[in-house]
Design a protein around this nucleic acid. Sequence first.
DNA 1: AGAATTTCGGAAAACGTTATCAGCACCCGC
DNA 2: GCGGGTGCTGATAACGTTTTCCGAAATTCT
Lengths: 362, 362
Amino acid sequence: MTDVTLRDVARASGCSVATVSRVLAGTRPVGAETAARVRAAAERLGYRPNHAARALRSRATGTVGLVLPQITNPFYPTLVRALTHALHADGLAVLLADCDDDPDAEAEHIADLLSRRVDALLVIPADERRSRDAVAAAAARVPLVLMDRGCGPGVTDSVAVDNAAGMTLVLNHLAATGRRRVCFLGARGTASAAAERRQAYEAGAGALDPEAPRRVLLGDFSVEWGRAAVDQVWDQRPDALVCANDLIAVGALQRLHQLGVDVPGEVAVTGFDDIPMAALSEPGITTVRQPVAALAAEAARLLRRTPAADGTHPQHAIRLAPGLVVRESSARQGTRGTPGTPDGTDMNNRNAVVRNDVEEAQ
Amino acid sequence: MTDVTLRDVARASGCSVATVSRVLAGTRPVGAETAARVRAAAERLGYRPNHAARALRSRATGTVGLVLPQITNPFYPTLVRALTHALHADGLAVLLADCDDDPDAEAEHIADLLSRRVDALLVIPADERRSRDAVAAAAARVPLVLMDRGCGPGVTDSVAVDNAAGMTLVLNHLAATGRRRVCFLGARGTASAAAERRQAYEAGAGALDPEAPRRVLLGDFSVEWGRAAVDQVWDQRPDALVCANDLIAVGALQRLHQLGVDVPGEVAVTGFDDIPMAALSEPGITTVRQPVAALAAEAARLLRRTPAADGTHPQHAIRLAPGLVVRESSARQGTRGTPGTPDGTDMNNRNAVVRNDVEEAQ
DNA sequence: AGAATTTCGGAAAACGTTATCAGCACCCGC
DNA sequence: GCGGGTGCTGATAACGTTTTCCGAAATTCT
């Protein structure tokens, strides 16, 4: 049961270590007959390459680090799943590091992963500003792709959902279903998700009501804030609450329920991200679905890319189009199965996707 | 920006590679003055050990594999978080593998992790039966701890919640709040969570009603099943639905809501696991909170343990006591905030949480 | 003071790969 | 028949550590 090495296979197949390495790695042509002999011996002995030795010699570990703020953030599990699958398909293993929203811990984890010689890093930065130095330093040493959130301009490659496009989907949907007094429950801060969604709302809401772009409340991305925000805004009697993410929407729905408000009759509520809870909430939350599989594929593609000859590759800031998922929280009362939506969407379907569904892209 | 090795540090500090290695690894006493010189040089040059080389030489990678069925299962993120933190505290890095509930993929991942020379494996088996071979084979090569679910008796060490104790907490609570016609919405299969919870229910429910142990419906651990199960059982007018996990409870609540049933007035609903959604559901779900941090700590401890001199260590099957979290879904109408649970359910349990305290586990 | 012991530092051999450099056939065209 | 390609293959040198194994110096014991 002890380890079997190249030497053993070489001895068993009557040739040298070098040849065995060559046939197994396919790095250089080798005689058909010897190749067969080697392969047979390797199979018979149950040879498994020693990644440590390989890594030492070839300076590539076949490993990428995945650094994220909090795996318990309900949007991340699906993203992590998609990422690990995409990377495993490339023969890469994933070292996971959860930094508990602490940029210092994040820096430490990044340093540790670098010393473990990861081939590349995938980072969801904990803090747009305070993560920057560590990320930039790491990006100078290995390919690094930022995901989901940005980290200041021009730091490194990034892959994220097109927040503005998502917000546009939401606003168009609300307009099409007759909502006029909309209001935005957002998050403070400059993190890309917070800022971009807010700006897109401000830019797009004017079409519904000249006052709408000014009805903006900022807190954080939490259920608690969603609850609190409703109290701050309800006396203005909005007919739609556009939330910057699903957690805020969940909180808003809870408070509205307590207040005995009819959703979607009196007010529509929309979220963003399409976390699992959005489908299970009562009522189901209309939201923007992130193209998770495509995001992961794109990130994997960026990591696969070999640096250009001059050492520096052009920086990519990839934004992928999301899709709108219409659920009960935004259906007009009495419009069940409505013909009113021009694209003939089935609004009864909890999982109905109206457009730009990129779930299956690539 | 190129890598700095032991050689460089040795040269810079005017001594040999061996000594540098010794002072940095602290493996053998070395002269105070030289040690200082070495440390200074290492610091100055920004030396970072090469884990690949270290792994090759000392046959230990400082890495453990974490294999799980589906990171998107809502109970796992918190567990993964706790595990990574516990392991990082031991200086171990975590290789994550998600197998999509497929035992074959699981076997492949385990083999891959072994060839990457992980020091140990943490496995949440995808299937009690079909995971067994791969797990047993792996356990013969590295320390392996099963988590959350079992994998047949006597395969290897395992750490899980005490399902029976949790079910007892639930039944006592229901008894104390006057529920009599209880019913169990469980999951088919022999997986430990499914079987143990069901058996504990059957063993304990008799105290409420001689018929109760026989009111058992089996499906799977899903929201859909929870919805469907309500339809099968509601005409018996139970006054409590004991669900085998929170997802089933969520589904049950959805269906009851659709039927216009008053929860908890007409019927109480309880879950198991305390996934985040349990607190956010409307009404909040009374459930059994798994001692996640303790489970992780226990698993880390088992991995740390060095095998006994004779090669085989005694097998541990560790079960940790959970706590009851009482929320609105089981409160007797008009008995909100009822203080004394006469049965003293929670008294001697460190993990017990009485009501809506969802933030601080232990 | 001589011997026995400890303490400290260096040289060098692993660990299991991959990559470089030759060598040895053999075949081609002159 | 003879230089010069072409395959294939084998020795062998890395890769950066850790870990013997040893010698030299310093310390302690008789």
